[in-house]
């Protein structure tokens, strides 16, 4: 009798995971950052929409997401229940850190959201337009200090691309790296630096209140509701989207990959997801399948080139 009960419990313990479409999402960053928020938003939507019964988020912080990525790839071979959130920053971090595990080690599922870079100056700055900023940069690159996110991240890469497009030696840019958006923003507001660069969302409320002047954005075309030219309009051929994606474990079968892709697509199409994007101010840049894979490959090549130009990767 006892044995039977134990066997039933054991069978239950083994059978349960197979029945429920459970996911564990790795957020390869500390709580609070963009990847963590993306993972936790996914958790809420997947559960509330009934796409998955139980979703857990696990933070594996470190080194621009490369530690989480390496751990994810090595521990989840063929595990269709494991997901990882990542983004453009990872592409650069893998290169600058010489990470042993790259994005080719996981199964990319879809690009979820994206933000464009914005270039701002404090309201009191004499610089009025992006052209004037570029002129100043050409005249003396060292005198133009840029506050932005971590070294080798999207912000740094954007400044490198901008300098190159303007015909300035990218190794000569005076880029001041800050660990978080908040600290960089404080430096810009306090006029400690010449200009600031970050995701547009970081600056929106400051621009609206008139404490910062938005000079340009890094999108292909003008963004609706944003009163600023693109870098392209200013004659600088720079387009950069700081995107976030979700990927699955390596070694999945085609059916497994299709199931995960379908779940993610259902999540993205849900009203709850769209509502979350709206409250958080994230743009829906959903892209899946071969198109996403092609774009990923293109980004990796372009990033490698510019990091070499800046001198961060040999």
């Amino acid at each position: 009798m006892k044995k039977l009960m134990l066997a039933t419990i054991l069978a239950g313990a083994v059978a349960l995971p197979a029945m429920a479409a459970d996911y564990t999402i790795i957020a390869p960053a500390n709580p609070g950052g963009g990847w963590d928020q993306t993972a936790r938003t996914m958790q809420a939507v997947l559960q509330d929409e009934g796409i998955s019964g139980n979703v857990q988020v696990q933070n594996v912080p470190g080194a621009g997401g490369t530690i989480g990525l390496a751990q994810f790839a090595s521990q989840n071979e063929g595990n269709a229940n494991a997901l990882i959130v990542g983004g453009y920053v990872m592409v650069g971090a893998i290169l600058t850190n010489n990470a042993p595990v790259g994005l080719e080690a996981v199964t990319p599922i879809a690009r979820l959201t994206g933000e464009y870079e914005a270039i701002v100056v404090p309201a009191a700055s004499p610089i009025q337009t992006i052209e004037e900023l570029v002129e100043a940069l050409k005249a003396d690159p060292g005198a133009v200090s840029w506050a932005g996110g971590s070294a080798g991240g999207a912000d740094h890469i954007a400044v490198g691309l901008l300098a190159k497009a303007a015909g300035v030696d990218p190794t000569k840019i005076n880029y001041i790296a800050y660990s978080g958006g908040g600290e960089a923003l404080a430096a810009i507001l306090g006029s400690q630096v010449t200009a600031g660069i970050s995701s547009l969302g970081e600056f929106v409320s400051q621009v609206e209140s008139g404490t910062l002047r938005l000079l340009a954005v890094s999108s292909e075309e003008r963004i609706e509701g944003v009163d600023a030219p693109t870098l392209k309009e200013a004659g600088l051929d720079v387009v950069l989207q700081n995107w976030r994606m979700v990927a699955a474990a390596p070694g999945l079968s085609d059916e497994q990959k299709a199931t995960v892709s379908a779940d993610i697509e259902a999540m993205v199409k849900s009203a709850a997801w769209q509502e979350q994007l709206a409250t958080k101010g994230w743009a829906d840049t959903y892209l899946a399948g071969p198109e996403f894979e092609a774009q990923l490959a293109a980004d990796i090549t372009a990033t490698e080139t510019v990091l070499k130009d800046i001198g961060l990767v040999k």
Binding site: I9, L10, G12, A13, V14, A15, L16, P17, D22, T24, N54, Q56, V57, Q58, N59, N81, A82
Partner: peptide
Amino acid sequence: LNLPAGPLENLFFGRPAP
């Protein structure tokens, strides 16, 4: 809180170990 589960934990709370 995310704490690793093993055979004992799975016996009572059947969830795959992450």
